[in-house]
Design a protein around this nucleic acid. Structure first.
Lengths: 328, 328
DNA sequence: GTATAGTTCTGTATCGGTAAAGGTAGTCGC
DNA sequence: GCGACTACCTTTACCGATACAGAACTATAC
């Protein structure tokens, strides 16, 4: 017994296949009467409804937007800031009837149908990004340094980092450490700007991992009076290690994070706040505009967006310890 | 200029379209030599790679698993327990090369191509669930009371709730309130079992909302010595209101949550721990088995899974206040 | 020299729809 | 009574691939 298709229904009723298609997809194109009988027959035959794959092929749209992420998805979803961003994207897109498809690194991005994609914090030369570009899928790059033609949504990483560094300098700190995932990047650049010539001790961390050993080593051997961290979660690890070492915060050590992750408030962590909801909305808007251009080439190209950030001063930063203000 | 397809490449080289298809999808089916020249020509012509929609129609698979959720996706992603579950599902499925498509309530589920679906905490009669059933999509129901033929993955809600209630009774509590989102449900049933005849004060809450007023009213007017909450987030609200009222916890009020949400440890909240990672893995496994049955009908049907839970006693519960142990 | 098998490529059939233009009546205005 | 309109349905022409069976050719064995 073969599958029930539009044709089966059409044959049964002696109408054209197109009419049956319209009965499901464009009810205004046929009389209510005929439509009712088509639906009845469809029901009788056990028709499953228009096949999404076939429809997708015929119309050229799939109803889904992809999210590219180069780490295991667990990490995206378990981080409150990232998850919040994704939630905002999803909600904003859902208003347009679009679903969100999350593509882990192991899934060949070229195999999954999508009308557009959001590349989130990927390396610009990551293979999946490259594939999608090839396919001509409209891409919005979020939190990525990617000079290429797509649209970018970023936050003012550099400005926020600069403010954070300036804040420490204002409090008299001179022996300052920075914890960054890699050499380079906007945040590091901003810190250096804000430090105005002070050479920081640079430590490298795994954003998603446990950096206890590295931090322990840094605090014990280099004795910074302040630490600038690439994220609040790293900063939280610094606070924990400081506690272990009996270092008073902020009396002996000031700590600054980044993101204003939900844990930051509870820890009294001074940090640079970003708005993941706004970022998500901006990304979704950009996608929407790119999609609009597909049907109406006159629609303007969306422009890059850079969202502002804000320094939030809490209890984890204070004046530099007396007599310790100079580089060791 | 029309689009470059397999046919364009085939024509250019004088080979059959099928051979070109194989060059991309089944490299072992042709000589390395021919394949190389096909890829070269493809490159020259600017071929974008096999169209996912077309492939999907031809093969009958789409490479994505849907997640059904009847609230705004923001709520799924911003809740740590749910997000963690989704992360586990995504990671587990990604090993099979499957992407995860999140379907918000506003997206017609029948319009998006998917090979299977995970319905998470939806009403069994929710329209999207019904559509997918119609379409014959294999569905795994998670945290749902759904007697129908699909596979279910649940946690021992009833047993956990029973243990929580017993715990309070053991500490001498007799005037106990429960906060639940709706009348009925496994957790409520478990509480009632554990209360062994004690009639609780029942309060209704919005799981995703702010219930301050309702809780304030409950604590002030009914003066329970203990509260059983349907989730840790509700329990956290109870703790906050207790603080406002100057009620000592646990001296004057014991509070029990559910889930062992990350905030619970910080709040010292006694709760029932579930393992969202295990739940995610179980759901993904079930999907995998359902998909396997599609190609090999002899593969056994996956069976329902009920995961154990565990009472975690922290500082928010203690002995009932003296002389208050009897129902008012 | 012929059967056996393996490699490489081709032909045909199919997957299940939608878009856009094309009839064909009946209706309306005048 | 005639053109224009509207409402409804049909025709034609795709959308871009994969599955499966078999043909042609090469190598190996005996």
């Amino acid at each position: 017994m073969s599958r029930v298709t539009l044709q089966s229904i059409a044959d049964r009723l002696g109408v054209s296949r197109m009419t049956v298609s319209n009965a499901f997809s464009r009810p205004d194109q046929l009389s209510a009467e005929l439509r009712a009988s088509i639906l009845t027959v469809a029901e009788e035959l056990g028709y499953r409804g228009p096949d999404p794959a076939a429809r997708s092929l015929a119309t050229g749209t799939s109803g889904a937007i992809g999210v590219l992420w180069t780490e295991p998805l667990r990490l995206a979803l378990s981080d409150a800031v990232t998850a919040r961003f994704l939630g905002a994207v999803a909600d904003e897109l859902s208003a347009d009837g679009l679903a969100l498809t999350m593509l882990p690194p192991t899934v060949p991005a070229h195999d999954v149908a999508m009308d557009g994609a959001i590349a989130y914090s990927c390396a610009a030369d990551a293979a999946p990004v490259e594939w999608l570009r090839r396919r001509g899928v409209p891409i919005v790059a979020v939190d990525m340094a990617w000079a290429d033609s797509s649209v970018r949504v970023t936050i003012d990483d550099r400005g926020g980092a600069r403010r954070a560094a300036e804040h420490l300098v204002e409090w008299g700190h001179r022996r300052i450490a920075v914890l960054t995932p890699q050499p380079g990047g906007e945040r590091l650049a901003g810190w250096l700007e804000g430090l105005a010539g002070i050479k920081p001790v640079v430590g490298f961390v795994d954003i998603f991992g446990d950096n206890r050993t590295a931090i322990l080593d840094l605090l014990r051997r280099r004795r910074p009076t302040a630490v600038l961290c690439a994220s609040d979660l790293v900063a939280a690890q610094v606070l924990a290690v400081a506690g272990e070492l009996g270092l008073g915060v902020p009396e002996e050590l000031s700590v600054v994070g980044f993101d204003d992750h939900p844990v930051a408030a509870g820890l009294g962590l001074t940090t640079v706040r970003q708005d993941p909801d706004a970022k998500g909305r901006a990304a979704a808007q950009a996608i929407r505009q790119l999609l609009a251009r597909r049907t109406d080439p006159d629609a303007g190209a969306p422009s890059d967006v850079e969202l502002p950030v804000e320094l939030v001063v809490r209890q984890s930063t204070g004046t530099a310890p007396a007599g310790e203000g100079t580089p060791g």
